[in-house]
Amino acid sequence: MTENAATTSPVPERRRFAFDLKAASPFIALAALILLGAVVNPDFLTVSNLTNVVTRSAFIAIIAVGATFVIASGGLDLSVGSMAAFTAGLMILTLNKLGGAETSTLLMAMGVALMVAAACGLFNGLVVTVGKIEPFIVTLGTMGIFRSLVIFLAAGGTITLRDSGMREMYRPLYFGSVMGIPIPVIAILLVAGLGALLLYKTPFGRHVVAVGSNEDVARYSGVPVSRVRLLTYVIQGICVGIAVLIYVPRLGSATPTTGLLWELQAITAVVIGGTALRGGVGRIWGTVAGAVILELVANIMVFSNFVSEYLVGAVQGSIIIIAMLVQRSLQRAR
């Protein structure tokens, strides 16, 4: 128990511009990794490479923003990877069914994707809250369900966007850029910005943190615990939907391996970003940094000439653990 000093004034001052090392540490780790990359191979530090990496991290980053909500409220969603594949599959099938290369067709298919993903999230949320089942089990189940639905839709093969006109029209959503910034990067910034606003500045966001911090306290404070939990899963679904919108134009296809292990990457990004797995803390921008870190580590592996391809996984794992250790020691040093 901390005691008050005799000198405590009745209304203490607030430190307005305190430097929050905890929040900054994922970015410090990110900077350190970039430095490491530059040492490993000078070609690493080119605009085009770094742009590629950040652009590629878009799917995981956007999904992980949703995961930040779920995890901050004390939940977990293992189904995001399968959900992404399922949504992408349905979206492409919609495009193929409607045919043609009209803008309206594309918009309709995008709407379908967002709705499908939100519905998947809603389903997860309902089973967790109404069924009162551990989220780990629920989403492990839906992970299998969504995954086999994709395989079923693809009849084991690949779901490919057939209309080449549509393909060309849609393609810039991944490959295009506005004022030199790739569109997926803009999407990350938008989603994370909205996520941060929602989590930090709205009553709902406050409730998310409260539920994750201590469900009982939240309940005794009149917080609608079930509704808050439910909504976090819906938000997760919508984020998956947005990620799919920029995933589909990249390769124009969904396969049974689409989104494989994305759930683990998203959770890793969230944790690297400083969000506690037990809930109660959510760091949106840290999560984005975490997603970029993951992609960057894989990139550095390809760029390094001295790591045998057999050992890439080991080195990758070690770098992530070291990055976390550095972060933690930075936080403790305070």
């Binding site: 690493f44 085009s48 490479n49 590629r56 391996t257 689409t258 390809v302 391809e309």
Partner: peptide, 24 residues
């Protein structure tokens, strides 16, 4: 250069992007 891309389109895209940045 040779790297694993797991018979997966997305991984192949990622590895190829990196090859292109790395090798002129």
């Amino acid at each position: 250069d040779k790297q694993y891309a797991n018979w997966n389109r997305d991984d192949a895209f990622r590895v190829m992007q990196d090859y292109l940045s790395k090798h002129p």
